[in-house]
Design a protein around this nucleic acid. Structure first.
Lengths: 118, 118
DNA sequence: AGAACATACTCTGTTGATCGATATATCCCG
DNA sequence: CGGGATATATCGATCAACAGAGTATGTTCT
C-alpha cells in the first residue's frame, strides 16, 4: 500500500498502460503524446519504474514479441495498479482544487488594492 | 528555472504563504486545514524546504517575533515564488486533466485474468 | 509536584525516485 | 559506411522527504 506520493513519470506510465498493454519504448511516445510533449520519460526512469511497479504488483509482464529482430517486452496494468492509479489521480485532483482555492483567495494587502473583478 | 517537479509538501508550503506571511509551525496547521487533513508536514521536511526555497529566492524571511518566550520566524512568498507556484499549479492541473482523460477512455482489452487480490 | 502535551525551531542520517550517461544490438536511409 | 530510430538495460549521482532525536518554554491534568 503506497501512501507515499507517486511521481509524475510513474503516474504517466500507469496511465499509459490503462489504455492497453504496451512495451517500454511505446510508452515513451505514448506519454509524450498524452502529456502534449510535457512529460518525456527517460529510459533509466522508465525501466527502473517498471521493475519497481512489477515488484509492487501494479504492473505485470504481458509477453514478449520480436519485431524485425528487436525484442519487445510488454507490460500490463493489474487490477491493484488500476486502483492505485485512480487513487493517485484523485489525490492530485484534490491537490489541484485545494491549492487553486487558496490562490484565488488573496492576501489582505492585495484585496485592499483591488476593486472586485481582476 | 525549476523545470523539475515540485513535490506535494513544497507546493503546500508555498500555497500556505500565498495567503500571507506565516511562521513554520503555523504552516503545519494551515496546510493540514487546507488539505483537509491529507497533507501533514513533517518538521524536518518543512524547515529543510524553507531553507531550500530561501536559497532559490521563492520565499524570504519576514521578521521574528517572540510570543510567550517562544521564537517565531516568519516567512513570506516572494514574487518569483508566487510565479513558480502558479506555474506548478498549472502543471498539476494539466496532469490531472490529461491523466483523467486517459482513464475515461475505455481500456482496449479486458484485464480480468490479471491482478492480485481476490 | 510531576507527567504529559502543545508550541517552536534545528540537525543527522537514511531512503528512494529521477536522471545523465553509457552500453548493447538491430534495422533503415542516404 | 555513418547516423538515426528502435528497443532494452545498468551505474552512479542527486536531492526531496522523512524518521528520529534534541533544545527550550508554557499550559493542563492529576
Amino acid at each position: 500500500m503506497a501512501d507515499t506520493e507517486m511521481r509524475e513519470p510513474t503516474l504517466f506510465i500507469l496511465a499509459s498502460l490503462a489504455s492497453g498493454q504496451k512495451h517500454g519504448y511505446a510508452m515513451i511516445h505514448d506519454v509524450a503524446a498524452l502529456s502534449d510533449g510535457r512529460v518525456r520519460l527517460k529510459v533509466a526512469t522508465l525501466y527502473a519504474a517498471l521493475g519497481r511497479l512489477g515488484t509492487q504488483g501494479l504492473v505485470a509482464p504481458a509477453g514478449e514479441e520480436s519485431v524485425d529482430g528487436r525484442l519487445r517486452r510488454y507490460y500490463a496494468l493489474t487490477e491493484p495498479g488500476s486502483e492505485a492509479l485512480e487513487r493517485e489521480l484523485q489525490r492530485i485532483e484534490a491537490n489541484a482544487r485545494q491549492l487553486r482555492s487558496r490562490l484565488q483567495a488573496r492576501p489582505a494587502s492585495m484585496r485592499a488594492a483591488l476593486g472586485g473583478a481582476a
